[in-house]
């Protein structure tokens, strides 16, 4: 016996469809309005700062040859534009630190606010029972946040590279591509790190179902990644090798990984007491120890791009693995 008093349109007769991606994206942006505004503010501020830095750096004109600026000075004019240059380098370095520290904050936010809070508070269930499947909800959140973060981070990276490419930097020993902060902030590694942070945080929030725990775990893990990646970078691409008697055999601007004296069997031998004096004396001393030559392993400047891309690929692979794990977790938990 039904209790209908007035069976008007039954459910489903007005051709309901799933909400479109655009609608869901709008919903997500409205839900995380605060975070969106914060991110936009950060990007705008840092971006404006980079534009200003470019202007400062472009106006630096070095009066003498570059070699005078590193090592013992050549004359009194060196100090003329030193303050401008110092400003430029100093703030640029801080921007690169920021670009690599922000992902930690993003991971914390993603864990706490993007997924953790919803799981803890039960509002995830609210979305899921308002006709969005769990996987679709997480996917849209990730895509929207990822898009916003990537766009912002990429703009900042482009501005950073532009702010660095000022005349005085060209060929300057200050332009050290092996400094991992500068290295990471000058290409797709930085935006990739933001994506990794987002995915890591989202997964932690889903797994732990508690905002505070997810915040701590994802921030800690991301910090570990950011600190640990530099150790991995040199091993991401095969090194070049030179074997001979020149102690500093690597070309200029190369990233030297190791210099070791090897004997006939290829075992490293210490040369510490042979370092001083003319080259012929050094050679005599070394031969007396049974040293066959000095092996230098290094990455020339031409390896910068491949290394960078390899690191990006590694980060994206990690991101994909975490995304897959998150989806599998959802599939296991909810129908």
């Amino acid at each position: 016996m039904s209790t209908t008093l007035n069976r008007a349109t039954g459910p489903g007769t007005s051709a309901p469809s799933s909400p479109s991606f655009r609608t869901l994206a709008r919903v997500v942006l409205r839900l995380h309005r605060g975070a969106l505004l914060t991110w936009v503010a950060v990007v705008v501020l840092v971006g404006a700062g980079l534009v200003w830095l470019r202007w400062v750096g472009a106006s630096v004109v070095l009066p003498g040859p570059l070699e005078c600026w590193v090592g013992p000075g050549c004359g009194p004019q060196e100090t003329v534009q030193e303050s401008e240059m110092t400003h430029h380098i100093f703030w640029l370095d801080w921007v690169s630190v920021l670009l690599l520290a922000l992902p930690v904050a993003v991971a914390a936010w993603a864990g706490a606010a993007l997924t953790g809070a919803e799981q803890e508070r039960g509002t995830a269930a609210l979305a899921w029972t308002q006709s969005v499947s769990p996987r679709r909800w997480i996917a849209v959140k990730w895509a929207v946040a990822g898009g916003v973060l990537t766009a912002g981070a990429s703009s900042l990276v482009l501005l950073f590279v532009w702010a660095r490419s000022v005349p005085y930097m060209d060929g300057s020993p200050l332009d050290d591509w092996t400094d991992w902060l500068t290295f990471s902030a000058s290409g797709p590694v930085a935006p990739a790190l933001f994506l990794l942070a987002l995915t890591l945080g989202a997964y932690a929030g889903l797994l732990l179902r508690r905002s505070l725990a997810a915040l701590a775990v994802s921030a800690g893990a991301m910090f570990g990644v950011v600190q640990g990646l530099p150790l991995l970078i040199p091993h991401l691409w095969p090194t070049e090798r030179i074997f001979g008697w020149k102690v500093t055999a690597a070309p200029a601007r190369a990233w030297v990984l190791s210099e070791s004296a090897l004997d006939a069997q290829g075992r490293p031998v210490s040369m510490s007491d042979c370092q001083y004096g003319k080259e012929s004396l050094v050679r005599q001393c070394a031969e007396a120890k049974g040293i066959e030559g000095v092996e230098t392993l290094f990455h020339p400047a031409s390896h910068a791009a491949p290394l960078h891309l390899a690191e990006t690929a590694l980060i994206l692979a990690l991101t994909a693995a975490l995304a897959f794990a998150a989806l599998r977790l959802l599939r296991r938990r909810t129908p």
């Binding site: 459910p11 799933s18 909400p19 609210l126 308002q130």
Partner: peptide, 24 residues
């Protein structure tokens, strides 16, 4: 626990319902 999104207003919450359930 009648979970709701705390940062939304009442009108926004109803708009959420409208957005997530198009056509019905």
């Amino acid at each position: 626990d009648k979970a709701l999104f705390p940062q939304l207003t009442v009108a926004d919450t109803l708009r959420l319902g409208a957005d997530l359930n198009p056509g019905r």
